[in-house]
């Protein structure tokens, strides 16, 4: 199965990258732009065929390594 782990800076944690992207977009003339937050997506190929188990495995990977839960939150999708 494929799992996709979305890692985002937690609410309230400064995201200077997101801010810089927002400023650059405003520089390009885009208007009406609110807060911009930048995170990352990690795709995993898993041998597991049971969706629930695959999701649990990817979540464990996220907790142990892929996300730092001090500053980041994560969400897992399996397909």
């Amino acid at each position: 199965m494929k799992a996709r782990v979305y890692v985002m800076p937690k609410a309230g944690v400064l995201d200077p990258q997101g801010k810089a992207i927002g400023h650059a977009l405003e520089g390009l003339g885009f208007t009406g732009l609110g807060e911009v937050r930048a995170g990352k997506v990690i795709e995993l190929e898993l041998a597991e065929t049971d969706p629930a188990k695959a999701k649990a495995q990817a979540e464990e990977m996220a907790r142990r390594l892929l996300a730092n839960t001090v500053i980041e939150s994560f969400r897992v999708e399996v397909a």
């Binding site: 944690v13 400064l14 200077p16 990258q17 810089a20 730092n68 001090v70 500053i71």
Partner: peptide, 11 residues
């Protein structure tokens, strides 16, 4: 140690 080191605020 607690906490984390984020990207410098100035980037």
């Amino acid at each position: 140690l607690p906490g984390a080191l984020l990207r410098n605020a100035s980037l």
